[in-house]
Design a binder for these strands. Structure first.
Lengths: 346, 346
DNA sequence: CCAATTATTGGAAGCGCTTCCCGAATAGCC
DNA sequence: GGCTATTCGGGAAGCGCTTCCAATAATTGG
């Protein structure tokens, strides 16, 4: 069995309180006894038991992340950055997955009741007022990523503005007949991106054909933000239109990948026949040359962690609703209008 | 403050032991008092404190996973399946990331010392004898994924055989001048895949040109299993050879993606000029039509979790070194020899 | 040299639970 | 009815730690 604090105390001939002070380097201890105790501890290979510490301190040094597992590479890249940001602290990360968006409640309930964590990161999941209230009542700091709630800290992308920019890029390229493929409108970002798209069209006096808008089906609460949904949407677009749009704004990169696959199958060339702009800039967008709106994913993860940690430490008060701007990354799927917006890329 | 077991006991007019029996549905309790207590508990919105339970039970209902974060989509898909398999149990998942492969020790040390978990999943990381011994001594069940150790349960892919099959496929297609792009040989799978490749060449009496073998550089202990490494390798291959191989076996799909990008830039057509076989079958392989060796990633994750849980419950003894076979998935990067090996795909 | 501080230390109490031991209550049996 | 099994419930002990309080030892100033 592993050594406990009592073993160390006995062997060092001191009380357990003193050992505790030694290992937590409290100032209330004589440096020489401290050294001696640390020596004994090393000898015994003593390691404090994290759980016991948590119980006594009422602090777990763990943060929870609630993630829709794993429908979209966006989450993964976010998680990576969260983990990265966290690795500089000594907090552990515990993962709560929600497998169906429409059943996120049970997961949230679990996070709340287990009390394993000092703070929670909720990714791409809407928090209703009831749960927001519960977290506030339980005094557990929460940061929402890619979603909003008026009472809860959040960090999200400016979706409407991003969609606007994407569409505007297409318009600037001379396109007039522009379509859009969106996620299901049960998703908040999907709504906003559609709004941004429509706004851009309107402000540039372009009419937009309803048949050129395809909303992906939601499945298992997934909002259609996946490759297959994009593929299917593109097939539908091609099937139901005699004249295709000359340009397409797709609400996410994974969907755009599906669009490209369907286009290829149908002999529709990109960008020659249809120009394409995505959204997210997941890692693979670069590999396939997809023009897209870059979400600063890594930045979002890092900021969220920093904010959460601050909240945990009680440093910060006041609301925090950060909105990051998406940035247009021009690659090849809109034709070689390189230099239209110069971007440094590694 | 949240209700404790004492609050429930007092309000129900019983002892704490009885409350404990009620919520853990022990048989040693009168059903009627149990119901009454459960009623009170609900009223008070009582939730047992997971940490306190863990401490008292000496069981955490948590499993740890040690993951190289996140150099390769292989890990992510594995993690997804792990999480999925776990969601059917009531174990939580805590994530320990190792950011540099060559510094996995500190992470393992932490897993060991914190004792937050009942079992550990170690993904794609080599375990040396010292740490294997420590886990055994601490009596913590471990399952290794994508790696081996003679004393520790493991589940891995048959790398050598998979590489052999990939190469053989190319040979069967009539290729003679076959090259390979591999990860750095500090990686065990990289070694095995190279062996399988060479074996296939040898057994089919094909000579293989050393200049057609590119070993990616290892960076930050990353073994070169990433897109950029593949890209760079392909550039090198093209640069240092007057006559290129007609086919290429690439040790991982992410690298193959880089290879494709470099090929495109250099005007080398795939599959016309060079046929390509990858390894892993990550989700994106399908999107880009990459012929590859499928690792049953989801199966690996699931089996690993099942085995780990069995070990935790003490059901299983004896060694367990499972080797799964990789399966050839024919797509487009070797030319349209569709039907060569018919594969059902959704 | 003495009172007043101040620096250290020991260890009980407490974190919220499980579990074991023991007594009370009830049931079963002759 | 009396006696033994059985069932059920109470609560102390214990999981491994932190922290607070009181006690002791070392210093300081005069």
């Amino acid at each position: 069995m592993a050594a406990t604090i009592y073993d160390v105390a006995k062997k060092a001939g001191v009380g357990i309180g003193t050992v505790s002070r030694a290992i937590n380097n409290s100032p209330q201890i004589n440096p020489s006894t401290k050294d001696r105790i640390l020596g004994v501890a090393r000898e015994l290979n003593y390691q404090p038991h994290a759980l016991a510490q948590s119980l006594a301190r009422k602090k777990t040094f763990t943060i929870a992340s609630v993630v829709p597992f794993f429908t979209n590479y966006f989450f993964i890249e976010l998680l990576r950055s969260v983990q990265h940001a966290l690795s500089r602290s000594n907090y552990d990360l515990i993962l709560y997955s929600v497998d169906r968006m429409d059943r996120s409640d049970t997961t949230l309930e679990r996070v709340l009741s287990e009390r394993r964590s000092d703070g929670v990161l909720i990714i791409s999941i809407g928090l209703n007022d009831a749960y927001a209230g519960k977290f506030i009542a339980a005094n557990i700091p929460v940061v929402l990523i890619d979603h909003m709630h008026f009472q809860i800290d959040s960090i999200a992308i400016a979706n409407r503005e991003g969609a606007y920019s994407a569409t505007e890029h297409l318009i600037a390229l001379g396109h007039q007949r522009i379509g859009m493929i969106d996620g299901h409108l049960s998703s908040y970002p999907a709504i906003l991106r559609l709004e941004g798209f429509k706004k851009a069209m309107l402000e540039h006096n372009l009419v937009f054909d309803d048949r050129h808008l395809i909303i992906c089906d939601a499945q298992a609460g997934e909002h259609g933000f996946n490759e297959v949904a994009g593929y299917l949407a593109m097939k539908r677009l091609i099937a139901q239109n005699d004249i295709l749009p000359t340009a397409l704004f797709v609400a996410s990169d994974v969907q755009a990948l599906g669009v490209m696959r369907a286009a290829k199958e149908a002999g529709v060339r990109i960008p020659e026949d249809i120009a394409l702009v995505g959204f997210d800039d997941i890692e693979f967008a670069k590999f396939v040359g997809l023009t897209t709106m870059r979400q600063p994913i890594a930045m979002m993860g890092q900021m969220a962690v920093e904010r959460l940690l601050e909240r945990i430490h009680g440093d910060q008060q006041g609301d925090f609703h950060h909105k990051l701007k998406a940035e247009l990354i021009v690659r090849e799927t809109c034709g070689s209008r390189k230099g239209f917006h110069v971007q440094a890329e590694s």
